[in-house]
């Protein structure tokens, strides 16, 4: 077995709201191999997004450790953190909110190239065109405003923005939940294709077990800030052990029927 790309041990995080302490993450541990997809499912409000934001170093956990690429990820800050961020990218749920409303597709995609000096200024146009083609958009989209795109196109741009940095891991937080069903299927296909081509790892977070099943190698089920069950994707869907996993499968009736028949 190869060394894990990401190793998370005992993450805890709670929020205070109105004098009440809400536990968002309760002793969460997981690990991920390079090129692997871990699906993270759970009903809304069970800490999935909190976990995503802790993993990409947007919010600090109260306890626990994260090793990413053999490095103490939580110990990084300032310039070394900004430099290391290129290896771990994130795609957000709302494809509109995730972009500066004044941005154009081209500016969104050149930002990462410029910040990490990945390509000389003269090569930006070409690199942006390459990225757009890779996510199934036309190079001509570069001149468009983000506001002129459809939800599916925006999410493709978001994926292209993450890909621009050639990361080892992309955290997808409900990345297809805001899209309609047909567009969702295209984006899922695109994700799998990109993984085959470049050996990316994903953490795919969703409340939609069908989508998670379609892309994941392994699935972890979250409930009330804890991972209650994890294992190979097929096994979790076929023989769920926890009540939470069973409830999620019951919520996707067509999936169960498909598996039984």
């Amino acid at each position: 077995m190869t060394a894990p790309l990401l190793e998370v041990v005992g993450l805890t995080k709670s929020f205070h709201s109105g004098g009440r302490r809400v536990v968002a993450l309760d002793d969460v541990s997981l690990s991920l191999a390079p090129g692997e997809t871990l699906g993270l499912v759970g009903a809304s409000g069970y800490g999935k997004s909190t976990l995503a934001r802790v993993l990409v170093h947007l919010i600090a956990p109260e306890g626990g450790s994260i090793r990413f690429r053999g490095q103490d990820w939580l110990g990084l800050n300032g310039a070394p953190l900004r430099a290391a961020r290129r290896h771990l990218q994130m795609v957000f749920q709302d494809p509109l909110a995730a972009f500066n409303p004044r941005a154009t597709v081209g500016s969104v995609l050149t930002d990462p190239l410029r910040i990490h000096a990945l390509a000389p200024r003269a090569a930006w146009r070409e690199e942006v065109a390459r990225l757009l083609t890779r996510v199934g958009l036309a190079p001509e989209h570069a001149g468009r405003s983000i506001l002129d795109l459809s939800g599916g196109q925006r999410q493709r741009v978001a994926i292209a923005r993450a890909l621009a940095l050639k990361p080892d891991l992309i955290v997808l937080d409900e990345a297809v939940s805001a899209l309609d069903v047909a567009v969702r299927a295209h984006i899922l296909e695109l994700l799998v294709e990109l993984q085959r081509a470049s050996g990316l790892a994903y953490i795919f977070i969703s409340h939609d077990l069908a989508a998670v099943r379609a892309v994941s190698h392994r699935i972890a089920v979250m409930e009330a800030g804890r991972i209650v069950e994890s294992g190979p994707a097929a096994r979790i869907v076929r023989a769920p052990e926890s009540a939470a996993a069973r409830a999620l499968i019951a919520a996707v009736p067509h999936l169960v029927r498909e598996k039984q028949g």
């Binding site: 900004r82 709302d94 972009f99 500066n100």
Partner: peptide
């Protein structure tokens, strides 16, 4: 907002986030 989080994730400098984004 998420677009500020997205800017942090791609490693943008805080000063650039504040004044350009």
């Amino acid at each position: 907002r998420d677009f500020v989080a997205a800017a942090r994730v791609i490693g943008m400098h805080p000063a650039e986030i504040a004044f350009r984004e």
